[in-house]
């Protein structure tokens, strides 16, 4: 697969992942653009990997957590407002938006752990590799995050949104 084809195919998914991770579209765009620029530089190596997309996604997580990523935009745009109500009710929307706010206020590593487990559907062992920590640390990060998000795990099951 050449680089342009990879970008055309994977960029929307990477952008969704980065937005879920950062809770800000401008930051996600910035992050994805930076990472794709770097991926281009090493594409000869990345293209030969079993899962180039997983590697690039890991680059996004690393960049996000490092805090040393360049802040390319001088004036971040306002994030896009939630869409006009569709089929869901006001209470559900309010609850969802409150969840986004709580998610956005989590410490970065806790948020990354939650997103990797519940959005990307990665096992704890893989999350531990991506975050550079032990599996027990992943579990404690997720546990603390769920408490802060006020999520009760004893209710309904979860389906992962990202297609791996």
């Amino acid at each position: 697969m050449d680089f342009a084809e990879f970008v055309n195919r994977q960029r929307p998914g990477l952008m969704r992942f980065a937005t879920v991770l950062t809770c800000q579209t401008w930051l996600a765009e910035d992050l994805v653009s930076d990472v794709l620029g770097r991926a281009f530089e090493r594409w000869d190596r990345i293209r030969g990997m079993a899962e180039p997309n997983a590697y690039v996604r890991r680059m996004i997580v690393n960049e996000y957590l490092s805090w040393h990523r360049r802040l390319a935009r001088t004036t971040p745009r306002a994030d896009i407002e939630p869409a006009a109500p569709q089929s869901d009710g006001a209470d559900e929307r309010a609850e969802r938006d409150a969840m986004i706010r709580r998610l956005a206020s989590l410490p970065r590593r806790q948020r990354a752990a939650v997103v990797l487990r519940y959005y990307a559907g990665l096992p704890d062992a893989e999350i531990a590799i991506q975050l550079g920590c032990r599996e027990t640390t992943v579990r404690s990060q997720v546990s603390r995050a769920l408490a802060a998000l006020r999520i009760d795990l004893t209710t309904n099951p979860h389906t992962y949104q990202e297609t791996r």
Partner: peptide
């Protein structure tokens, strides 16, 4: 809340 709400937040 529950994981369904988290799921909806991710979807949004």
């Amino acid at each position: 809340t529950n994981l369904q709400t988290l799921n909806e937040a991710f979807a949004e």
